[in-house]
């Protein structure tokens, strides 16, 4: 874009906190404009504007406390559960303003699923973990349909072959990586359009991480995925676009390849070259 061209002539100063790169997309699934988040008096996110494209994996990176998880939780209004949290600005899913008064968070969260940092299966059976979402939303009218949804979701999450013999056993008895895949299966069981992942591999060993990363790559064909990660290699491996956050500001957005090979903003460069964070 012309903005970028200008950058090459004129390097961005370290103090400039305006977003550089390509934050907008041609066919966005989600549109965020001028999003501010406050915890009480403290502002956690400042004027973030970004598009999330269809069937892409957007990685959000940045040092701890930079607001990337906070921003992620705005996307399905999980911040509503925090008493003194206030969100301003506009976030749209397709044509719907998700912070509109009339919007009901229950169907919204069915359309925008979430996977958390620590695997958090319900203390119920593997089957019930996956079947819970479809059950409360009434997605299956018969037991057979429900069985089908459970099987498809577990298959998509790459867990079916490992657990099909023991669906009645508690989900909490699985290994960490399996639990996280169970949580992914639970999220996709309600057929969301967007899946938010908040550092999904931070509690997992490298082998389980690799499995999840492969899974994310496969899921991309059907879902839009936003993933927060501390692990830059992971961001490089799984995402098409990367957004760099710094102290509540969205500093730079661009194709993952470009961000990691040719960052524009000095703060981004510092971070990916390991000078801080």
């Amino acid at each position: 874009m012309n903005k970028m061209v200008r950058m090459e002539d004129n390097p961005v100063s370290r103090e400039d906190r305006r977003t550089v790169g390509k934050p907008f997309s041609g066919s966005p699934r989600m549109i965020c404009r001028n999003v501010n988040v406050f915890y009480g008096d403290k502002q956690a996110i400042q004027e973030v504007s970004i598009d999330i494209g269809r069937n892409e994996v957007l990685a959000m990176i940045g040092p701890s406390g930079c607001g990337k998880s906070t921003f992620l939780r705005c996307l399905n209004r999980m911040n509503d559960t925090i008493d003194n949290c206030r969100v301003t600005g506009e976030i749209r899913l397709d044509d719907m303003d998700i912070y509109d008064r009339k919007v009901d968070v229950v169907p919204l969260r069915a359309r925008i699923g979430m996977v958390f940092q620590k695997p958090n299966p319900f203390p119920k059976s593997i089957y019930d973990n996956v079947a819970y979402g479809p059950k409360i939303h009434g997605l299956a009218s018969t037991r057979r349909e429900l069985d089908e949804i459970v099987e498809t979701s577990l298959t998509k999450a790459g867990l079916w072959d490992e657990v099909k013999e023991r669906l009645a056993q508690p989900g909490t008895g699985l290994s960490g990586g399996q639990q996280q895949r169970l949580c992914i299966a639970r999220a996709i069981a309600v057929s969301p359009e967007v899946i938010l992942m908040d550092e999904p591999c931070s509690a997992l060993d490298p082998i389980a991480t690799a499995t999840i990363e492969e899974l994310i790559n496969e899921l991309r064909t059907q879902y839009t995925i936003v993933i927060v990660t501390h692990n830059m290699q992971q961001a490089a491996r799984v995402s098409q676009r990367t957004a760099y956050f710094h102290l509540g500001d969205l500093i730079e957005v661009g194709s993952t390849k470009r961000i990691f090979t040719n960052p524009i903003h000095p703060l981004t460069e510092d971070y990916i070259t390991g000078r801080f964070g």
Binding site: N76, M78, T81, V106, P107, L108, R109, A110, G113, M114, V115, F116, K118, N120, P121, F122, P123, Y132, G133, I136, H137, C183, R186, A187, A189, V190
Partner: peptide
């Protein structure tokens, strides 16, 4: 985390 999990699937 249990509450978040349930809210996350739209309960």
């Amino acid at each position: 985390s249990i509450r978040e999990a349930a809210l996350g699937v739209g309960a």
